[in-house]
């Protein structure tokens, strides 16, 4: 396959950045999208040019490091698939592909396609954990959990923190990520003690980081590589309403 790539190049946080066009020939349809970028980078290095910086780690769709907007779609055209698991057979020979970084105030560009997603860590730091020391994994049957809750918590726990939901959201909101990280704990017995301080803390941290507000538009779910459903945000809303109604009852931190 021969492809024309238009890639966002930005030397550093202060650089203005621009789209630069590259021609990449002899791409195998069996390559992953990132392997195709590796090919481009090898050629750029041989030619003495600066390679395109992009984030990646596991390359098997589980770590959440990779992520770029491909032809206007976060993680590219294939549903439930990270950029590293996207294969070139989903593109046509001779196609022009636009590649841009996640665009959000809370995700400043570090270089080229690499953005700083530290704001997601700040949301986690504001309550995305439990304080009870749990030791090693307990015997599964010692703490009964209703099947529906276990399934929903598991679904939320599949979030890999890639930030595609933010990149796709017309409001630049990180509510799907926040909801996944709140509900993976709030649906389980171990998550109960901090249930209400957690949701308030994490939503506050989300807003402070400069993310937009959620309007239930549903773009996030459409691009999420882990298929986190939109109703997860409803679970967060329910917890948030309960938590705000509780304010004043001396729950520490609320």
């Amino acid at each position: 396959m021969n492809l024309t790539l238009r890639i966002w190049r930005q030397k550093g946080p202060e650089d203005k950045g621009r789209m630069v066009t590259y021609q990449v020939d002899d791409v195998s349809p069996d390559m992953s999208f990132l392997e195709m970028l590796d090919v481009l980078n090898e050629r750029l290095i041989l030619a003495g040019d600066e390679p395109v910086a992009f984030d990646h780690d596991c390359r098997e769709g589980i770590c959440g490091a990779c992520g770029m907007v491909i032809n206007g779609n976060a993680h590219g055209p294939q549903k439930m698939t990270t950029a590293c698991q996207l294969h070139m057979r989903h593109f046509a020979d001779g196609e022009t592909i636009d590649i841009e970084p996640w665009r959000a105030r809370a995700f400043p560009v570090v270089k080229d396609l690499v953005v700083n997603r530290g704001s997601l860590d700040k949301i986690i730091a504001a309550g995305g954990y439990i304080t009870a020391p749990t030791g090693s994994a307990p015997e599964a049957h010692s703490t009964p959990v209703a099947k529906a809750n276990a399934d929903a918590a598991f679904e939320s726990a599949a979030c890999i923190g890639c930030g595609a939901c933010v990149a796709a959201c017309p409001n630049g909101s990180g509510m799907l990520f926040t909801a996944a990280k709140v509900t993976q704990l709030s649906l389980l017995p171990q998550g109960q003690p901090e249930r209400f301080t957690r949701v308030i803390g994490m939503v506050d941290a989300h807003d402070e980081a400069g993310f937009g507000g959620c309007t239930n538009a549903g773009e996030c779910t459409a691009v999420c590589p882990k298929g986190i459903p939109l109703n997860t945000i409803g679970r967060l809303n329910r917890d948030y309403l309960k938590a705000t109604a509780k304010r004043g009852d001396n729950t520490p931190g609320s």
């Binding site: 238009r6 966002w8 950045g17 789209m19 907007v69 032809n71 206007g72 636009d98 841009e100 665009r103 959000a104 105030r105 809370a106 560009v109 017309p170 409001n171 630049g172 909101s173 400069g210 993310f211 937009g212 507000g213």
Partner: peptide
């Protein structure tokens, strides 16, 4: 929403 995405997508 506007403040949350200061640089727009080209595509």
């Amino acid at each position: 929403a506007r403040a949350a995405r200061p640089v727009r997508y080209a595509h």
